[in-house]
């Protein structure tokens, strides 16, 4: 609105109006300028590093691009090939979904169980909580992936332990049936951060509810089922969404454990690992961009689906 008036004054007023226009700009500046000055670094980052690249990546997904020659428009060819003629894409999807479906429920169940144990006024709560949280802090590092690679190797620590019970374990990381499980175990090992969020959620449940229930003779199990679980659903929902999105994006452990190949026989070929191989191994930047947009689509669909179904099972206070 203000700019329309400004330009009208500027056109009609000539020299006389100039101070007025300047005053207008000055007052606009005084009102909104400080906010935008503080926001400036973020705004530059948003346009230069997020919005601009996102648009560019969408364009590149319809091209063939190897970094050397300029991108060549190929229409929907990348997407068509992904959908119909790319066995590695199919393998990556399968591995990634398997990983999500296995790791998230195990991790959350374990986190909830331990949180329930810790919530009941256990002595040494801060000690246990800190200890259980430690793997979440270390888990993403190369060092832990290296350790995992040794733990589950044919002559690794796990098999040495099993040997003491007379069991001869396979080489877990180099067997296509078991390799994904080593990554699932690594993910469950990092149950600490959802556990802390569960603990914070359990604190919010008013104690008088349990008291009323136990006066009515409700068993501990019934109390859990009828009070704790329903009141905790918002936290479960939050943890499930966050952990699922994280699982879709997992990269480092699969990269280190498989030596960057996603093997054996693509059994640890996480989606992000495949995307990395296409982009920075084969320099198929256009194809990799299409893969990236499909990942966005999958995560977006999953998130939308969770929020739509959440009203049927997530309990919100009014």
């Amino acid at each position: 609105m203000a700019t329309v008036q400004d330009s009208a004054v500027a056109i009609g007023g000539g020299a006389q109006a100039r101070p007025a226009a300047q005053g207008r700009w000055a007052s606009l500046w005084a009102k909104h300028g400080a906010g935008y000055m503080f926001l400036l670094p973020w705004l530059i980052g948003f346009f230069g590093l997020t919005l601009g690249p996102a648009i560019a990546s969408f364009y590149l997904s319809f091209t063939s691009f190897d970094l050397i020659r300029s991108p060549e428009w190929v229409g929907t060819a990348n997407y068509v090939r992904i959908a119909t003629a790319d066995p590695k894409f199919a393998a990556a999807m399968q591995v990634t979904f398997l990983y999500v479906v296995l790791s998230v429920p195990f991790k959350l169940t374990f986190a909830l169980l331990v949180a329930l144990l810790l919530d009941r006024g256990v002595k040494g709560l801060t000690f246990y909580r800190a200890l259980f949280y430690l793997p979440s802090l270390l888990g993403g590092s190369v060092a832990i992936a290296v350790l995992w690679r040794q733990l589950f190797a044919g002559d690794g620590l796990i098999n040495s332990l099993l040997a003491q019970f007379g069991i001869e374990g396979p080489s877990w990381i180099s067997h296509p049936n078991y390799s994904i499980w080593t990554l699932v175990v690594l993910s469950v090992w990092q149950f600490g951060s959802p556990m802390i969020i569960f603990l914070a959620g359990l604190r919010q449940i008013p104690t008088d509810m349990y008291e009323a229930a136990s006066l009515d003779g409700a068993s501990k199990f019934r109390q859990f089922y009828k009070i704790t679980l329903p009141l905790l659903t918002p936290v479960i929902f939050f943890n499930a969404v966050v952990q699922t999105i994280d699982a879709f994006k997992a990269f480092t452990p699969a990269f280190i454990i498989s030596g960057g190949t996603g093997g054996p026989i693509n059994s640890t070929l996480f989606y992000t690992l495949y995307l990395y191989q296409e982009a920075f191994g084969n320099f198929r930047m256009g194809y990799a961009s299409a893969l990236a947009w499909i990942l966005v689509l999958i995560i977006g669909l999953f998130t939308a689906f969770s929020f739509l179904t959440s009203r049927y099972w997530v309990h919100y206070d009014d």
Partner: peptide, 13 residues
């Protein structure tokens, strides 16, 4: 909410 993979390649370029 946006996975960084979407901006990865243009940022690299």
């Amino acid at each position: 909410m946006i996975p960084y993979h979407v901006t990865l390649i243009p940022q690299y370029v």
